[in-house]
Amino acid sequence: MPAARNALLDLNADPGIVTRNRMAVWDVLDGVRLLPLAWALGWLDIRLRYRRSVLGPFWLTLSTGVMVASLGYLYAHIFHTEIHDYLPYLALSLVLWGFLGTVVAEACTAFTDSESVVRAVRMPFFLFAARVLIRNVMVLVHNAVVIVVVDAVFQMWPGWHALLAIPGFLLWGIDSLAVVLLLGTFCARFRDILPIVSSIMQIAFFITPVLWQPSQLGRNQALLPLNPFFDLLDIVRAPLLGSVPGAWLWGFSRGVCLSARADASLSGSEPGGHSEQSTHTCRKPLGLLSAVPRQFTKPEKNRVGGCVRPTRPGSAASRCGAGAARHQLQLARR
């Protein structure tokens, strides 16, 4: 049975910036090659969560539906809004925010949840990010049923503008992967990040128009785009609500800018660099594969060599995030 995944493994203690970036790119490419695995893992996560229940993953749909219905009636009353305006808005907002919030929350545990795998076999870290994304897209698809039902009941159709949500969704996918790699790495190394992230997300839920509508702010509406969560949410939500493309384009470009800037600044080292690269500086050097003379792939020429002197985990942490995650896991075991 062939198992020729790693034809060459070449790890140096202090790779230069070029090697690190190449390793990061290979980590992502290698992860993309393993997408069938990420798909299977994401799907199994959902299935195992609802195993042996009659409704299965449709419990997601049902519980979201109940929440939307109850919150919808309550808040329509509190806000003195018409229910047929408010409920479709709420259903869409809650489901979309649910995706964003869960991705961010699960980003923090993306690597630590897979500790047994990370410590048992060398896998591209991108795999775990893809797993989180796939799992949450599946949840989103189940929850989207609620949006469709509510829209059908209240006869709210967004029209062709809705198609403009597609590039928004694509951007969400890229952002999700970036945020999982970034937060996953930091949270594996520094366990205090998780509570910080969850409280930020909770605050964000209330200060972002999810339960309430932007129009309720009156003139202060103009300040809303300063909230990055609003931009991010609206690049998908606005088209689905049937907004004009002008506003949408504005929100889109703003979302791109903000997310790219956040990636660059949070990942620190390189201006303009994607977080995938910066957080994954210590990964697979398959780029060297092409440089391997062919005879090395013959069994007779197989070699294992090691010259290892790990010193301080702290220095590993400063060297690269991925290494830090590994070291944290290593230390946790000791």
Partner: peptide, 14 residues
């Protein structure tokens, strides 16, 4: 699985 902090590891083959 663990990457060296000092030194070098090189492995050729599956």
């Amino acid at each position: 699985i663990y990457e060296p902090v000092v030194g070098h590891v090189r492995v050729q083959g599956s």
